[in-house]
Design a protein around this nucleic acid. Sequence first.
DNA 1: CATGAATGAGAGTTCATTCAT
DNA 2: TATGAATGAACTCTCATTCAT
Lengths: 196, 196, 196, 196
Amino acid sequence: MENKSKPKYKLILDAAVDVIAENGYHHSQVSKIAKKAGVADGTIYLYFKNKEDILVSLFEEKMGQFVSRIRNEIDQLDRADEKLYKLIEMHFSQLAEDPSLAIVTQLELRQSNKTLRLKINDVLKGYLALMDAILTEGMEDGTFYSQLNVQLVRQVLFGTLDEVVTNWVMKDQRYELVDQAEDVHYLIYNGLRDHG
Amino acid sequence: MENKSKPKYKLILDAAVDVIAENGYHHSQVSKIAKKAGVADGTIYLYFKNKEDILVSLFEEKMGQFVSRIRNEIDQLDRADEKLYKLIEMHFSQLAEDPSLAIVTQLELRQSNKTLRLKINDVLKGYLALMDAILTEGMEDGTFYSQLNVQLVRQVLFGTLDEVVTNWVMKDQRYELVDQAEDVHYLIYNGLRDHG
Amino acid sequence: MENKSKPKYKLILDAAVDVIAENGYHHSQVSKIAKKAGVADGTIYLYFKNKEDILVSLFEEKMGQFVSRIRNEIDQLDRADEKLYKLIEMHFSQLAEDPSLAIVTQLELRQSNKTLRLKINDVLKGYLALMDAILTEGMEDGTFYSQLNVQLVRQVLFGTLDEVVTNWVMKDQRYELVDQAEDVHYLIYNGLRDHG
Amino acid sequence: MENKSKPKYKLILDAAVDVIAENGYHHSQVSKIAKKAGVADGTIYLYFKNKEDILVSLFEEKMGQFVSRIRNEIDQLDRADEKLYKLIEMHFSQLAEDPSLAIVTQLELRQSNKTLRLKINDVLKGYLALMDAILTEGMEDGTFYSQLNVQLVRQVLFGTLDEVVTNWVMKDQRYELVDQAEDVHYLIYNGLRDHG
DNA sequence: CATGAATGAGAGTTCATTCAT
DNA sequence: TATGAATGAACTCTCATTCAT
């Protein structure tokens, strides 16, 4: 479990993403990941407690980068609606740039059991907190409606992003995901109503 | 051995929902479902091709009712925004009334393999078409913005509903799901913007 | 088990030969035989004790006819070597005329367990006794060598006939089985030695 | 847990012969073979693709030895009739020395399905070719009748050997199988006719 | 006699994890 | 650290037979 900084640790995680994206969650045996990573089966267990730990670590690692990149960009913006747009755009662009990761997060990792999904939700909390911060900021400075139910809005936002990405993955990534960012932002921000 | 009056087909499907909700998808052996239904293991195979067929049938049966109930109510309404509200409200109320089904659809059935998920998506198409119809109607009569990207709005809507219900299930159904309907409808319809 | 003379009894046996010849022993379920015979599964058990009993009865019935036809022809002949020839020729011709039966006796019925094969051997005893009779007669009248080991010769004879027919079945009956009778008789009677 | 020196591959094959001879083909579960071999069930699958592969390998291994031993002895003889005698004698002696193997080859392996039987036939081809060679040689040097139908004679020979061994196995090996060699050779070579 | 819905025992195979080297 | 051979628990589906009608 220690030495997570050493190269083999990364090697195994990267192999895991590739193997799962290629073969699907249920056909991604530990031995397959070990082979892809170029290590022995037993070696896996020097770096990870068990198979589930590979997946959780994978998600932590990738999601950590995912969120911190978004946070960095957002910190340089002033207005809440711009921050919201940036979050949407980067959510899409980052997954579009790493299709294997997209397949793993949107499809394959959902086939895991309840325990694993709870741990994944823990990892997501940082992302959800970032959303909450943007919303609260916008409510305070008048960009957003001041009476919003933040928890609920965050569910609308996350549910939407998740569904849009999943659709794109299920449609075999045949269109430009990032092209959806503008429309999604418009919808979330303005709703369905005809403001004409 | 109870319920001798019910046809075995229904008996088995109901048992399947209960068993999966209680034990999780991966711990729901056919023998467990048979026992709960009060039939022999082999009897299952007189009514279903295999284990997956139980799940697909379950989803078809329950989702079929789910959608047709919503459609019936909506047909009696005139305005698109009312129809949208009714859809949201009934989406929530029907799952709130059948917590076992909610657990199965929101959590357990997602652990299945790609084949099964594709079949589930087929079943969902009827529901998505209903959403599209409401949106198109609203765009035509001026209730909704006439330039909406219907496919995308539907993803926002479905993604939102799905995420809100999943949150409620993951939080062990500790609050009234239907109470969210109004806020969700407001958000979808008006967006985040302060219209004040 | 009684009423073996009634038509349904025969109906089921004929169905069994067809089903086994067509599907192979291990894919010939009782229900398949029942369907082919045009009766309900349960009806089978009014005429036969169990599945094995169908097979034994089938073999008794068909083999009984097989042997008695040979015996009838042989009784009209005088010399032992002529009788031997007739037996060989009729062994071949009868199986050649009923290819389904040939498949069943040469290939499929051998996949059965030891118990069944012992019962089949019982049925064969009448045929072996007929062979013994021909051999003994020939030894006494000087047609055959008088010091023959009858039991062993019978094994040579039966083993040969069996192997020749099996070969013909395995080669998909692509040649005239009866054409082999003369050569087989010559070999058995004269051996390999060059008598020139 | 014994026999730690023997390679596991051989250990499993030997165990398979014993288990099948003792319990019959259809009652020889993989777990029974594993237990007898002193390995875990899963270990079987490190050395064999599946259960059928155990049987095919078993037959290949044992039959390969069987034939090559005969070939070695025959190569040291000159006359075709001596070679024929040696083949008969060794066919009997080798099976007599390994009664378990005799039971497996004569009775149990015949209960297998068509696929397996075809593979077994492939293995037998080498043996049949050896017979053909002896016959052809004898026909050329005048030991055997020069007009023999080789294919047919080989069927007489193999059918006879097979039947004689099967009889011996079915009679629970109560007599000396090798004692039959001389009479069998005499019959095949000289036929039934009284040459007196 | 005839039906056919219901029964339930039984077995091959995979794969996460261990541990002696 | 690293290896990889060995482990063994776990589960779906078939089909001969029964028996209430």
